[in-house]
Design a protein around this nucleic acid. Structure first.
Length: 890
RNA sequence: GAUCCAUUAGCUCAGUUGGGAGAGCGUCUGGGUGACAACCAGAAGGUCAUUGGUUCAAGUCCAAUAUGGGUCACCA
């Protein structure tokens, strides 16, 4: 006898073992097989600082489902894993760590600090990837990459130099977003905008000529020290005569000009704007137009500098408080107004960002954005769901130059070298030994590192060997689909696309599959600060990885958030349990040998029915998977296994398994097991562990732990087969199931015990008699009958019965002393009402001239048939109702 | 301010070329039946947010409104 599965479903017992078997046998390895088509996904690299959270679990499960599906379909499927150095995030962690030793990073020096950072990476960097294995991720671990490994470093330098030489990277002194806490510049995308309650303070700037001067409003009085002008609209009549005159900066005493510029809106505030070019983007532009000085009054740590006079050294907000007080005491404050102030915050530490004038490196975006837009417009790049293309397009259309230098140590150091002699900047992939212009050896490398996203942007091809024309790059690139959350479309997706188009000339992936966030049971975002995060590893410990995976990939829609519900987790686990038990049943009913293939001529109706149902499901599931409708695909497999295979097929087939007909028994065994194999394959992408475990007990060719080709993970995805449609047998089973349900229904309503054998009479229409009778043996067992009689004459039906009507037949159950006419009456009335409704609906359609003239003929015929059917059923119900009413009356 | 999403059974959500409203959980009624109580057999429960439009036909397409949520935006 074949060894059976354990008595109870216990995922802990086999999940790790199965994973080890896959990994050690090389089942995940993707070969460059010219016979196969490639399928590639690169994993969005998790930060080395992070822990695996539910967001990763969702993101990765989706990728794994797709990868496993394609692998089963015979593709050479590569899912390439890796992790991201996460410049700012990691640096902050390492700084915190050395601070525990009472040290600042400056105390260590750059070299020693980087050593510590690498130590951190070694220590924690592998954590997430180890955790991925628990989820069942079928990544090719031999190809695992890190954004700061040698190859990626080379790609980054190469890309930087390429852009620089094309004039797409430049160094400039411009206004950038500065995070005072992280001590670095940020890109626009790294600044989060938030509305905060604050004030407008209205201050009078007196005229230098002793006149009234001008009143300006500001939400940031501390920047007044950096004011270099007051701007008014040239069309603002209130201020026409002020233009060209000077006003005095209160208390400071410095005289500044009143200038005319289109920027001020006469409708807003007082119509006059103080201009602080060093601390505001708009003011900066005004300053450029009027050739004004950029007077900086705030330090990098957000304290005031010497320009603020006695406030030097004070924090910007402390200064604000004291300064407003002083201005008020001196009579310059005209009024204060409560106001909602939009502020920018650092996306890492949420410190209010300070716009600062600074020397930084920038990427010129317009020339890069255009091809990326084109790729979306002409369909080389598609978004799932489609609507995210708008997000993508709008961001690219409004894009500004990208500040890529960061004042940090952990990251890719900018490959630019300054000559101390002549000031020349040498940009080079290889570390130069001397200045490219004057030949001096006194050169030093730029201190800054690059934005993390600069290297992430190269991920889909740097991981495959670019800039070298490697075999991997040729075979696996461009990748097929990128799976990611909508929250990083801007940060990441967009940058990968333009970087790829610029370097490889191809889109980095054809499709972008966008998923939502996993929220908690109340619908809140899971976050560290709320402490409402659910640890995927704990869930796996309790319910198994398969249950988690199934729960995450079904019952959701692409692009929409999902709520983490324990209910659904339990229901997924129950489904696994159901499959486990069904498989146990199948195995326990096998002989010593695996059943051999039987000739289709031996198939019974129910065999053809389940084969046909599976065949239909294969078509449906394959189409859904191809459209990324994983949820619908998973749901369909669930229904197939539970509601068709378990609920009906297994129940029907039991009689044959316990019977004496040896050949028929073998047929049943074969169909049972071959159906199961197909269903396991369909389910495998979603629930890889349990399906692989069961497979190892029922595979046609024995599983060899060393040979991945014998595993389910490398089996063949079933294909839809026109030859496996059996409409007649499907109809027969359908009718048998309808009759069975009717009888069960009657039994329940009459409160007859399930164990009690009943008799039933089926009064069938002539044309349906054959088909009804062909289902006799199913109905007898499934409805637990002692006798079943078919007739076409009404007279054969006894009077004391309960009844039900289905298409083509009436079902009667004589209940003798169990007879409950009240229940029967109630049920018949309900049925009558329902049928009347149906007839009304169909009549409505058929008497509608528009419908009759415009609807497709096929549909009209269907409706006509329905009309006949419903009317027949109704008349039967009415007749029966009459009888019962008389009975009760008499 | 611009834009996107959501609104379907008590709860959480599916519903993909417009053509008879579904699942899981919960509730109610039966059930220890030779895989499964993490189960089986039944049942109740919905003017698909509102209004208008297109269509023979709308949960599904279009337009407005309401409520909730998200994203983007240089407003002193």
């Amino acid at each position: 006898m074949k060894e059976n599965l354990a008595k109870t479903y216990d995922p802990k017992e086999f999940e790790d073992r199965i994973y080890r078997m896959w990994e050690e046998s090389g089942a995940f390895r993707a070969e460059r097989d010219p016979e196969k088509k490639p399928f590639t996904i690169v994993m969005p690299p998790p930060n080395i600082t992070g822990q695996l959270h539910m967001g990763h679990a969702l993101d990765q499960t989706l990728q794994d489902v797709l990868t496993r599906y394609k692998r089963l379909q015979g593709y050479s499927a590569l899912w390439l894993p890796g992790s991201d150095h996460a410049s700012i995030a990691t640096e902050v962690k390492v700084v915190d760590r050395i601070r525990e030793e009472g040290l600042e990073k400056e105390d260590l020096g750059r070299e020693e600090f980087l050593k510590r950072a690498w130590q951190w990476k070694e220590e924690f960097g592998g954590k997430i990837t180890r955790q991925c294995r628990k989820l069942g991720d079928s990544c090719d671990w031999d190809r695992e990459r890190f954004t700061m490994d040698e190859g990626c470093n080379r790609a980054v330098n190469h890309f930087f130099v390429q852009l620089y030489e094309k004039g797409l990277i430049y160094r400039g002194n411009r206004l950038i977003n500065w995070c005072p806490k992280c001590g670095t510049s940020l890109s626009d995308a790294e600044v989060e905008h938030e509305d905060k309650n604050g004030f407008y303070w209205y201050f009078r700037y007196p005229g230098a000529d002793g006149g009234e001067g001008i009143v300006v409003a500001t939400s940031r009085p501390e920047t007044m020290f950096g004011d270099v002008a007051v701007a008014v609209s040239p069309d603002d009549e209130r201020y026409t005569d002020m233009i060209g005159k000077k006003v005095v900066l209160p208390i400071v005493g410095r005289e500044i000009p009143v200038i005319a510029d289109p920027y001020p809106d006469p409708e807003k505030g007082t119509g006059a704007v103080k201009i602080t070019p060093a601390h505001d983007e708009n003011d900066f532009q005004v300053g450029q137009r009027h050739d004004l000085e950029n007077l900086c009054c705030i330090n990098e740590d957000a304290t005031m500098n010497h320009v603020a006079g006695k406030y030097e050294g004070l924090d910007r907000y402390e200064c604000r408080k004291a300064w407003v007080k002083e201005l008020e005491e001196e009579g310059y404050l005209v009024k204060t107004e409560e106001m909602v102030i939009p502020t920018g915050e650092c996306y890492r530490c949420h410190t209010v960002v300070e716009p600062m004038l600074s020397d930084q490196w920038f990427v010129k975006m317009k020339p890069l954005a255009e091809p990326a837009l084109e790729a979306a417009r002409d369909g080389r790049l598609t978004h799932v769901p489609e609507r995210f293309e708008k997000t993508y397009v709008r961001w690219l259309e409004e894009i500004r130059d990208w500040c890529i230098s960061r004042q940090l140590w952990w990251g890719h150091r900018i490959p630019a070298y300054y000559c101390d002699e002549c000031g020349e900047i040498t940009v080079s992939e290889e570390t130069p030994t001397k200045c490219s212009k004057c030949g001096s050896e006194k050169i030093r490398q730029d201190e800054d590192v690059l934005d993390t996203w600069f290297s992430s942007g190269l991920w889909p091809f740097s991981t495959l060997g670019w800039p070298d024309e490697t075999e991997d790059l040729k075979y696996f690139y461009p990748t097929d689909v990128l799976v990611t959350g909508y929250d990083i479309i801007f940060f990441w997706v967009v940058r990968m696309v333009f970087s790829a188009l610029e370097t490889t000339g191809q889109v980095p992936f054809k499709d972008v599959y966008v998923h939502g966030l996993v929220r908690d049971e109340q619908g809140r975002k899971m976050s560290k600060s709320l402490g409402n995060g659910i640890d995927p590893l704990e869930v796996i410990e309790q319910y198994g990885a398969d249950a988690l995976r199934f729960m995450l990939t079904t019952g959701i829609t692409p692009g929409n958030d999902m709520r983490f519900k324990k209910d659904r987790l339990e229901s997924s686990r129950n489904f696994a349990n159901k499959l486990w038990n069904a498989s146990r049943f199948v195995i326990m009913n096998l002989e010593d040998e695996m059943p051999e293939k039987v000739d289709p001529s031996l198939w019974k109706d129910e065999d053809k029915w389940i084969i046909s149902r599976i065949n239909d499901a294969v078509k449906y599931v394959t189409e859904a998977m191809d459209k990324y409708d994983l949820s619908l695909a998973g749901q369909r497999v669930y229904d197939l296994i539970w509601n068709e295979y378990c609920d009906w097929y297994i129940e029907i087939v039991k009689e044959r398994l316990y019977g004496d007909d040896a050949q028929d028994k073998k047929t049943a065994q074969y169909v049972l097991i071959s159906s199961l194999r197909q269903m396991l394959t369909l389910l495998h992408p979603f629930m890889p562990f349990i399906t692989e475990e069961i497979w190892s007990h029922i595979a046609e060719k024995a599983v060899d732990e060393k040979d991945p080709d014998t595993f389910l993970i490398r089996a063949s995805w079933p294909e839809y087969d026109e030859g496996l449609r059996f409409p007649e047998e499907v109809n027969c089973l359908q009718m048998a199931m309808d009759i069975t349900r009717s009888i069960r229904n009657i039994r329940a309503e009459a409160e007859a015990p399930a164990g009690k054998k009943l008799r039933s009479i089926i009064l069938s229409d002539e044309d349906k008699m054959e088909i009804a009778k062909s289902g006799e043996r199913y109905v007898k067992t499934l409805a637990n009958l002692s006798g079943l009689q078919f007739t076409s004459t009404k007279g054969d039906v006894p009077e004391e019965v309960m009844s039900a009507v289905i298409d083509g037949a009436e079902i009667f159950v004589p209940l003798d002393d169990l007879m409950d006419y009240e229940a029967e009456l109630a049920r018949l009335r309900k049925e009558k009402k329902r049928l009347e409704g149906e007839v009304r609906r169909v009549d409505g359609k058929l008497s509608n001239q528009g419908f009759m003239s415009k609807a497709p003929e096929k549909l009209i015929n269907e409706e006509k048939e329905k009309k006949v059917m419903y009317e027949e059923m109704l008349s039967k119900v009415c007749l029966r109702l009459d009888q019962v009413e008389k009975k009760i009356g008499g």
